[in-house]
Simulated scan of single mutants.
Amino acid sequence: MDIVIITGGSRGIGASAAKACAQAGMGVILTYNQNPEAARRVVLSIEETGGQAVALQLDVGVSASFAPFRDAVASTLLSKWQRADFDALVNNAGYGLYAPIPVVTEEQFDGLFNVHLKGPFFLTQALLPLMADGGHILNMASATSRVATAGVAPYAAFKGGLEVLTRYMAKEFGTRRIRANSIAPGAIRTELGGGLNDEFEAMLAGQTALGRVGEADDVGRVVASLLSDANGWINAQSIEVSGGYLI
């Protein structure tokens, strides 16, 4: 059984990805930051359908917590699956913030940077010793880094940086046959950034070729698919999952 770690797996795309990976036969370690009950519900949902999952606490914005988290992962792998390594890491945890450039504070900028770029960089670094050769790193980018949307400049900039980082991961980890890809979701109906009101959703749907905004499951299924052996020759790519947004 392959084991996948999914950060931010207690809600939204992360929760959907956790369930999709479990349905595909993977064991799942999902992380949560402030809502253990939501994480428990995801684990229970997976277990009710015959899957295996564990939830661990992690704040991706605090790199000092990564070494203790690595130790917790090692302990969990051994006790739950009798393994010393895992197979895939999905750097998914994140949050949204609407603030035009003239009013973005340094604190807001640093918070987004820590979670969306610094966090995935150093968390991946911390977990590499536990990752099996032939594994997979999947980074959650965003279509906002490709189409300028007023009010999300720092978020989009760091997501764009994550796409660049993905290619470097693929280059540097290739000697261990570890592949690295990123997914760039378009407009998705989640709680990120406060969610979508009816007017905003209608506008986004009108700008999408398939005529609607995406659901978390639209992305979660792609995560599970990319982690499968069927897509084992896809490497160093950023795949937009947007239904055809602004094409």
Results as ranks from 00 to 15, higher is better:
Ala170Asn: 04
Thr190Tyr: 10
Val54Tyr: 01
Met1Trp: 02
Phe69Tyr: 02
Ala74Tyr: 02
Thr7Pro: 08
Leu196Trp: 15
Phe122Ala: 01
Gln108Trp: 07
Arg41Gln: 15
Cys21Met: 05
Leu112Asn: 08
Pro120Arg: 08
Gly211Met: 10
Gly160Ser: 11
Ala17Lys: 06
Val28Lys: 03
Pro68Ser: 06
Glu48Thr: 14
Leu44Gln: 15
Arg167Ala: 12
Phe121Cys: 10
Val103His: 07
Thr208Asn: 05
Gln237Leu: 01
Gly14Asp: 01
Ala93Cys: 02
Val219Cys: 07
Ala148Arg: 13
Gly50Pro: 02
Ile5Met: 02
Ala180Pro: 02
Cys21Leu: 12
Gly61Met: 08
Asp229Trp: 06
Ser63Trp: 09
Trp233Lys: 11
Glu199Met: 10
Ile188Asp: 00
Val152Cys: 04
Leu210Glu: 06
Leu196Cys: 05
Gly160Pro: 09
Ile183Pro: 02
Ser63Gln: 14
Ala38Val: 03
Asn197Leu: 06
Asn92Leu: 04
Ile188Glu: 05
Ala202His: 11
Asp198Ala: 15
Ala143Ile: 00
Val60Met: 12
Asp71Cys: 03
Leu246Trp: 06
Met140Phe: 06
Lys80Glu: 12
Ile137Thr: 10
Val73Ser: 03
Tyr95Ala: 06
Leu210His: 03
Leu117Thr: 01
Phe158Tyr: 11
Arg11Ile: 00
Lys118Thr: 11
Gln52Met: 12
Phe86Thr: 02
Phe122Asn: 03
Ala72Val: 01
Tyr168His: 12
Glu201Phe: 11
Thr166Glu: 09
Arg83Asn: 01
Leu56Cys: 09
Leu130Ile: 11
Ser63Glu: 12
Asn91Gly: 12
Ala88Leu: 03
Ile137Ser: 05
Gly186Ala: 13
Tyr95Gly: 14
Ala236Thr: 09
Pro154Tyr: 02
Phe66His: 03
Thr166Met: 00
Val54Lys: 11
Glu107Gln: 14
Asn33His: 14
